[in-house]
Nucleic acid binder design. Structure first.
Lengths: 242, 242
DNA sequence: AAAGATAGTATCCTAGAGACACTAAATAGG
DNA sequence: CCTATTTAGTGTCTCTAGGATACTATCTTT
């Protein structure tokens, strides 16, 4: 009856020590692999995280990694959890607390941009994922919201933060001319749209392009946009909480 | 001075006819390639869309596809635009119109689940992307919102819809036991979490897991969740619009 | 010292994206 | 009519990735 209580992936996420200490001692452990992968992703994006490259960074062969992570997907999940727990957030009215939590989430993605590329793979299950989740719930302690709404609001806010981060990254990539196939696309965009968007078919879009709304998409407008949407969502929460 | 007015990718997105009709006539065109790719994605997900498989479906070799699409990424963009324009939406108060637009977006993803996997790659640029964008803006005509807020709200709502779709897909995949590595993970999840989530460290999360909130994540709760968040966002918009 | 367990290695396979040089089929101008 | 030009589609090659399998190396327990 030595069936594991928890699946092996969960055991790795929580760094549960293995029962036995038989056999050859390991040079590597889960943390070493995850840290190396995170370092690669931090400086080159998720695409840099390949089993060969992680293995090379650690000075081992790629197949040895499979002793410590079950698959590439599991490695990604471990990386997501591995970037760490939330910071201590100030207690206070739910609106300020929840906003601070959202800012902390955004900050986390800014430090690890590849987090914006990840798909949600279900409910949080790692220790740090749970910690972030717990912090999000805690921010609403002083509200009169029930569990159901709280959970949904946590999902909405974290989804919003990730979505805005993705958008900001895409715009930044397009703007700074990544040298990829969309070099100069930013310049051509306005002119091409003016030529292609027929005001008869698309009256509102054409009017928008004719206005200078897109012109002031300056350097730090991302922060303004972020606050705008966050406040909008918080207004929506306020409508529910009262 | 016969430089193209618009980049070639945009020309393909908008199906601008090429000037010349020299040379060998094409068996294929952009639409044929895109339609085949969409058909594959519809029945097997984005992972089914590979150049070899698309080519096989069309009875050509994979390299011939590059005569009609510039790259895999461009094919994805063409697919996204290729699923079609928005339906006609009822005029009316902005709140109902915007809600209807969001429902139409959700409906589109339900018909083409792979749309949930796509990253936003900047502002909309294809004819149908523009059409959806235009429809979103139009839904708020009767509000007193300025262009800036309108654009942001369109982004927030479409991001919300896509995020919820992704979440619903993840949960559905976990629930129906895809046969992948997470077979039975759903069952183990509750028990494992109860064992791992220390109430001292994670008081709110532990309390949540102890409650039966997750138990009633029934079959059609996705719709309920969707409406909850949508209403929350609309409440936020209302706070801005007044 | 032998048996058993675990860590890391060497080699193989499958599959995809894309480069490049080729052949095939059309048109325009002499 | 015929040939140069232009465009469409093919065949083959390279690179890179994830992963399976069978192996060797190194430790602990008895």
């Amino acid at each position: 009856m030595d069936e594991p209580e928890v699946p092996i992936e969960l055991a790795r996420l929580w760094r549960l020590p293995s029962q036995t200490r038989l056999g050859r001692p390991a040079r590597l452990d889960v943390d070493a692999v995850v840290d190396a992968a995170v370092a690669l992703a931090d400086q080159g994006g998720l695409a840099e995280v390949t089993l060969p490259k992680v293995a090379e960074a650690l000075g081992v062969t790629k197949m040895s990694l499979y002793r410590h992570v079950g698959s590439k997907d599991e490695l990604i999940a471990l990386m997501e959890d591995g970037v760490g727990p939330p910071p201590d957030l100030p207690e206070g009215p739910w609106r300020e607390s929840l906003a601070a939590w959202a800012e902390a989430l955004a900050d986390r993605i800014e430090r690890h941009p590849w987090l914006a590329d990840l798909r949600v793979a279900g409910p949080p299950s790692g220790p740090n994922g749970i910690a972030w989740f717990d912090a999000g719930l805690r921010s609403m302690r002083r509200s009169r919201l029930d569990w159901g709404p709280k959970v949904r609001i946590v999902m909405i806010v974290s989804d919003y933060v990730q979505g805005m981060a993705r958008l900001a990254q895409s715009l930044a990539a397009g703007r700074s001319g990544t040298g990829l196939d969309q070099a100069g696309a930013e310049l051509a965009y306005g002119r091409a749209m003016a030529a292609l968007v027929d005001p008869e078919r698309f009256p509102d879009a054409a009017a928008l392009f004719a206005s200078d709304t897109f012109a002031d998409t300056g350097a730090d407008s991302a922060d303004v946009d972020f606050r705008f949407g966050l406040d909008l969502i918080l207004d929506g929460v306020a409508a529910q909480a009262d």
